[in-house]
Simulated assay, not measured.
Amino acid sequence: MCITWCRGKSADEVARLFGGEPVDAELKTLDEAFDEASEADKDEDDDEAVRPPVILIGELGEWTVVLEPYGGQGVRPLVLQTLSEGGGRALSFKWTVNLDTIFFYAVNGLRIAGFDLLDPPARPGGDADEIEELVEDLPKSLESGLILAERITGQRLDSAWLSRRHRRMFMVNPIRHARPWLLEAAFGHPMLDSAELRPLVATAPTPDRLPFIIASALDIAMRENAPQDISDDPVVAEAMAALRDRPGAAECERLNGRLTEVAHRFRAQTTDGVRDPLARMDQFSTLNALAAAFIPDLATAAFQTVRAVRQLRWLDVETRLRLSVLAGCVHFIRKSTGAIS
């Protein structure tokens, strides 16, 4: 089940952002909505008979509450971002029978907190300073979602509210984002507004952005907490200098071959009594990324470079997300230019 709170938009606006049509709404209890959602699952063999997902929408103080018996639209980054745009706020949490749980909070179009309800952090991270105290002492249970929602909204979603009839709608037209090159998991993340990524994701990326993508991925691989001693290798030094002004195809092919040889030499050393063989594997991945940057075909070079960097062990969650954004842009460019179908 998924429950979403939104403040700053009318209930009808919220309904439409979830894909519902207010004119088709009927008053139902939560139990009735669950029954209808369950009935929809019984017709899986008949496409025409399958009902769209069910949502139940009601108001609670200044907030609009959306309940999805078997859905999860509310925790989609795009939905949260859109619900909170224009100075609004939106929060949503979801849990499943397998005890998979997630909580998200967005303010003014930016997702500022997200975490597992069964393992709430001491600090929510991101820009969520305003709810840091609210996260304290949360129980590691499903009810923590309702507790935190009440702390943020000042409204209690109690049994009386849940037992009343609210507007039931079907999600006939769920919101779709207009930027297919952008990984939806990154929607609303503050990093998209950074000086580095904003020019890349604001409009559809084109092939002229591929060198930037390669440089961004390599910057991650070569940064302070990545393996450092590979920079002492003369072939690596030559390649790093060549990156500033990408050479022609023949020189790219030569550098790619030499860097591949260096990478395999480092990999062989992982079994030669090296103190930290896993660190050597990180060096191997970094060298693979650098070698990939000189594949003559630029689109393939970008794809393979990002792919190699994503294999590094030390990457934190935000860095992995950043690389996923770069990978999504490369995929979009390759697809839009016919490099892949």
Rank of each mutant, 00 (worst) to 15 (best):
R265L: 12
F115C: 01
I112G: 00
S84I: 00
A149Y: 05
V235M: 02
L142I: 15
E196P: 01
K42N: 07
A263S: 13
E133K: 15
R258Y: 02
F34S: 01
L298H: 02
Q228P: 02
L290C: 08
G8Q: 10
D127T: 01
R16S: 12
P174T: 11
E21Q: 11
W95G: 08
E238A: 13
A33G: 07
G154S: 13
T101P: 04
R151D: 02
K140F: 06
G20A: 12
T305Y: 06
G87W: 08
R209W: 04
S159V: 15
A221P: 03
P139A: 13
E133N: 14
G72Q: 09
V172T: 15
L210Y: 02
E59W: 00
V14C: 09
L142C: 10
I213R: 04
S10G: 13
M281P: 06
A263G: 10
M281H: 12
D229P: 02
A202R: 12
A195L: 12
L78Q: 00
E85N: 04
G188Y: 00
A242T: 09
A11P: 06
P180F: 07
R275T: 14
A249F: 05
G109M: 05
E130P: 03
E224F: 06
N108F: 03
G154K: 13
A202L: 07
R176T: 13
I147N: 03
Q81E: 14
E59V: 06
A249Y: 03
A122E: 15
E253H: 08
V274P: 00
E224N: 06
L197N: 07
I3L: 09
G109Q: 08
D41W: 04
A339D: 14
F284T: 15
D232K: 11
A301Y: 09
E251K: 12
D193R: 05
R16I: 10
D193I: 02
L298A: 13
T270F: 00
V97Q: 14
E13H: 07
Q311G: 08
V306A: 03
S141C: 12
I147W: 09
I55Y: 00
H189A: 10
S159E: 15
D158E: 14
D297K: 14
A202S: 13
A242K: 09
R334S: 06
M169S: 00
R275A: 15
P124A: 05
R179C: 01
T319K: 08
L83H: 01
F18V: 01
I340D: 15
P22D: 12
G8Y: 11
D282E: 14
R275Q: 14
L287D: 09
D193V: 04
Q81K: 11
N108Y: 01
W95S: 13
D100G: 10
L78I: 10
